[in-house]
Simulated assay, not measured.
Amino acid sequence: MNRNSIIAKVFEMNPIVALVTFSALASAILALPTNSSVDATCTVTSYDDVASAVSSCTTLTISGITVPAGETLNLNLKSGTSLTLSGTIKFGYSEWKGPLVTIKGSKVTVTGASGFKFDGDGAKYWDGQGDKGKVKPKFVRVQTTGGSVLKGINLLNCPHQCVSINSADSTTLQNWNLDVSAGDKDDLGHNTDGFDISSSTNINIQTATVKNQDDCVAINQGSNIYISGLTCSGGHGLSLSVGQNSGSDNTVNNVTFIDSSVSNSRNGIHVKTHTDGGTGYIKNVVYKNIQMSGITRYIINVQEDYAGGSSTGNPKANIPITGLDISGITATTSGSDCIPVYILCASGGCSSWTWGSISYSGSAKANSCTNYTPSGFSCK
């Protein structure tokens, strides 16, 4: 029996029941959301709609919103979500620690559309005192996992640290642009780190640009970190800063910086360990094919003597550095105060380093190597 025969049979048996049934069905169909209403729910143009969209949509767009002062744009995404950011996302002014944005989720893709940016309005915070003075919010915290990809993200005028990659795993950041160059005016921007990495594994940063007044990248704790195609300007270079936490988990292992450039910066490469924190180690770190220009203080600087945020001249081996391989370095210096290579190791604190193909030009002071000279390098 076909569909028309069934309908005819129902009307023949009880026409009233049939009419009521079909009327109810039609009403139910009309009550269902259309494709356009679903799309509208998942396209967010007001901060008030973010939480519901993030919790219900796996394909969504957030465009041109303003986040209220003192609040975080929480992008706690469902697994597998594809998020597009468009327009300019702004933040109300408030003196607090932040972060202004958090991005979480497993197997997520976050894409900045052409012209997109997070605008941190940093000039309202910058006072030349960085970590001190006004309380300044950190900007973006990344805590994604599972092969997530975050690409095409632009950050303008970070009030404080730009990107904190914390407790993340298996995450790739592609084509990020962090522009804090306005903080150069009157030397007001300070502690505007580009990428800070801690407690994270399997992190890949590709083809990013950082213009700031502090470390371009600072790795505090993590493993299996690969950074390539980085362009850094105005800051403190490609850094490891390890040992600030109490305990024994101050560890950095299997890190590569490759095919990158550093210009107009205090340091090119900076590896520092902290004597007033806990214990741990730095192992298997590679810097390869790094071009530098306009370096004012150190081309390569390795120190095991930091405490209270600065060099003390008293190195300690609580964070031994093993397997630091550096090659393919070309640099020019700016000014006469630059020390091309400065190594200050504790007794027994450094071992199994291999360096090669390191060249520089410009006026500079003599190299300095204390308690260790790498294989393949002459400190003279």
Rank of each mutant, 00 (worst) to 15 (best):
Asp184Ala: 07
Asp193Asn: 15
Thr59Asp: 10
Ser170Trp: 00
Ile203Gly: 01
Asp48Met: 03
Val44Gly: 07
Ser79Cys: 09
Ala28Val: 04
Ala51His: 10
Val242Gly: 04
Ser198Tyr: 00
Ser327Leu: 07
Thr66Pro: 01
Leu240Phe: 10
Thr81Ser: 06
Asp131Ile: 05
Lys272Phe: 05
Asn371Thr: 06
Val67Ile: 07
Phe257Asn: 06
Ser246Ile: 00
Thr102Gln: 02
Thr45Gln: 06
Gly243His: 03
Gln291Leu: 14
Asn157Gly: 14
Ser246Asp: 00
Ile282Asn: 04
Asn318Trp: 01
Asn2Leu: 00
Pro320Met: 02
Lys365Met: 10
Asn284Ser: 10
Pro137Cys: 09
Thr61Lys: 13
Ile258Asn: 12
Ser5Asp: 03
Ser23Ala: 15
Leu30Tyr: 06
Glu71Leu: 11
Ser36Leu: 15
Lys365Gln: 15
Phe91Met: 02
Thr84Lys: 13
Pro68Trp: 01
Asn318Lys: 01
Leu19Cys: 07
Thr84His: 09
Lys211Phe: 03
Tyr125Asp: 10
Gly294Glu: 03
Cys369Thr: 07
Thr172Pro: 02
Thr61Trp: 03
Ile339Trp: 06
Asp337Asn: 14
Arg266Pro: 01
Ile329Pro: 10
Thr72Leu: 07
Thr21Val: 07
Leu230Ser: 09
Ser233His: 10
Leu238Tyr: 04
Gly278Arg: 01
Trp176His: 08
Ala26Met: 14
Ile319Pro: 00
Tyr342Pro: 05
Gln303Tyr: 14
Phe118Val: 08
Gly87Ala: 08
Ser375Arg: 06
Asn371Glu: 12
Ser241Cys: 05
Gln303Ser: 15
Leu188Met: 13
Ile203Ala: 00
Leu60Met: 14
Trp96Thr: 10
Thr207Arg: 05
Glu71Trp: 09
Pro315Asn: 05
Ala26His: 08
Ser347Tyr: 12
Ser37Val: 13
Asp131Gln: 09
Gly247Ser: 02
Cys379His: 08
Gly309Ile: 12
Val54Trp: 07
Gly278Ala: 02
